[in-house]
Design a protein around this nucleic acid. Structure first.
Length: 423
DNA sequence: CCTCCACCGGAACGTGAGGAGT
DNA sequence: ACTCCTCACGTTCCGGTGGAGG
């Protein structure tokens, strides 16, 4: 989206290093964009004092050389769980240094570190012991980790973000980790699990459950007012003075509050709004930018979802899209299925049963890319009435990026006409 | 009030991939 | 290398159903 002027002599004669200087100087809105990224850990967390205090008071024994209770933290996305833990952790390490107590916080994201082996290896690495990422027997890694951990007197607090992802693949690691303290002479270990799924402990071994959940913290979602405060504070750091229209922050907060109080979403919105304003060379972020940003974020989400759909679901979606162009959105399962069958035939894909397609349609409905409602048409039966809830043409081109659907490019016109005749 | 359409959606089962244990 | 288990994905079978039209 960067336009380069080539029509004036001045631009052509300008030395190359001046080119970027000029572009750089055009960026006038942001002071620091990173402040609005989800990777940024703020020093000050509005409306999370209670959580910070609770967490700190649970962890304070660490500074006296005792083992803090293990903690489970629950809360939906964007409620500040990770930020609070990182913040408190930083403070704890700082205070520990001041008083000469060795406290280490190790932060792991279980979505990436998702097996027993990787988890132990990563922990060992954080403590300064390199273990090859593959190859060793798991129990050897465990031993190695234990020895490294125990070679110094210290308290180690392991933070496991998205712990539910790890549990789904077995809870042995957690069992081992929660019992490891009995084998340690010098150091002590304590666990903090973060999850956005309230029910994930159901899958846990009862022993692990009780040991891990010695203390529990629940982070409630923010309301619109609280999100407003958060945005206000971050906007001060991220944007230059007087570049935000008054309504911008209110609007971002309102949009995000609708999404179950997700602060991350609100910050994304604020950042994308600024980026859009910047691109249109506007020196002020205005309401229209926020609305555009909201649209863009939603569209990016849809594109991502559609792109990663399994082929069969893509075919079903494509059928719905084609039909919704021909009709006024009153599409039935039967219609969809016959178009779907034709397309499968055209590209030589397996044809699934209608029963399965019903389920696939329901899945698409849950993802929010089509609407499906069961309606009765009396004498003419009972069916799902399907309509697409996304822009048809854009989505179609995303679908066509899939090489397996490519052959349809030439078939699609025929498909529709035969279909129309058929009905 | 009854019928009957065109599908819904639950249940049980089959299959193949992939991981753990031995 | 082997079995055993789990899980995702599909199929088969089938009872169930809201309401327009008779």
């Amino acid at each position: 989206m960067i336009e380069i002027q080539t029509n004036t002599k001045e631009t052509l004669n300008e030395p190359l290093d001046g080119l970027f200087d000029k572009l750089l100087s055009e960026v006038v809105i942001f002071k620091s964009k990173d402040v609005l990224r989800s990777t940024y850990t703020p020093d000050y967390l509005p409306h999370r004092n209670y959580e910070i205090q609770s967490l700190a008071s649970i962890l304070v024994p660490a500074l006296r050389g005792e083992i803090p209770s293990n903690i489970l933290i629950y809360g939906k996305t964007g409620t500040g769980k990770t930020a609070v833990v990182k913040h408190v952790g930083k403070e704890l390490e700082k205070t520990g240094d001041k008083h000469g107590v060795q406290c280490r916080i190790i932060y792991l994201n279980c979505e990436i570190v998702d097996t027993q082996y990787r988890l132990l290896a990563t922990l060992a690495k954080h403590l300064g012991k390199d273990i090859p990422m593959t190859g060793w027997p798991t129990d050897q890694v465990y031993e190695e980790f234990k020895n490294t951990l125990d070679n110094k007197k210290r308290i180690v607090i392991v933070v496991m973000d998205e712990i539910d992802k790890l549990v789904r693949k077995g809870d042995d690691v957690l069992y081992n980790l929660s019992r490891i303290n009995t084998d340690l002479k010098n150091s002590k270990i304590s666990l903090i699990g973060i999850s956005n799924d309230l029910k994930f402990t159901e899958f846990l071994d009862p022993r692990v459950k009780s040991s891990l959940g010695e203390e529990e913290l629940i982070f409630p979602p923010y309301d619109a007012e609280q999100i407003h405060d958060i945005l206000e504070q971050r906007a001060g750091l991220a944007y230059k003075k007087n570049v935000l229209d008054d309504i911008v922050i209110h609007l971002c907060a309102a949009f995000a509050a609708q999404e179950h109080g997700d602060a991350r979403r609100a910050l994304d919105l604020l950042r994308v709004s600024g980026e859009l304003a910047e691109r249109t060379k506007s020196s002020v972020v205005m309401e229209k930018h926020v609305r555009k940003a909201q649209e863009k974020i939603e569209q990016d989400r849809v594109v991502e979802v559609v792109r990663t759909l399994p082929t069969q679901s893509k075919l079903v979606l494509l059928s719905v899209l084609l039909l919704s162009k021909e009709r006024n959105n009153n599409i039935s399962t039967g219609d969809t299925y016959s178009v779907y069958k034709q397309m499968c035939h055209n590209i030589g894909a397996d044809i699934l049963t209608q029963r399965r397609i019903t389920d696939l349609i329901s899945e698409l409905d849950m993802l929010g890319i089509v609407n499906a409602m069961v309606v009765s048409k009396g004498r003419y039966g009972r069916t799902k009435e399907i309509s697409s809830s996304i822009p048809v043409d854009n989505t179609k081109s995303v679908l066509m990026e899939d090489y397996r659907l490519k052959p349809l490019d030439t078939f699609i016109p025929n498909t529709i006409t035969t279909q129309v005749k058929l009905v």
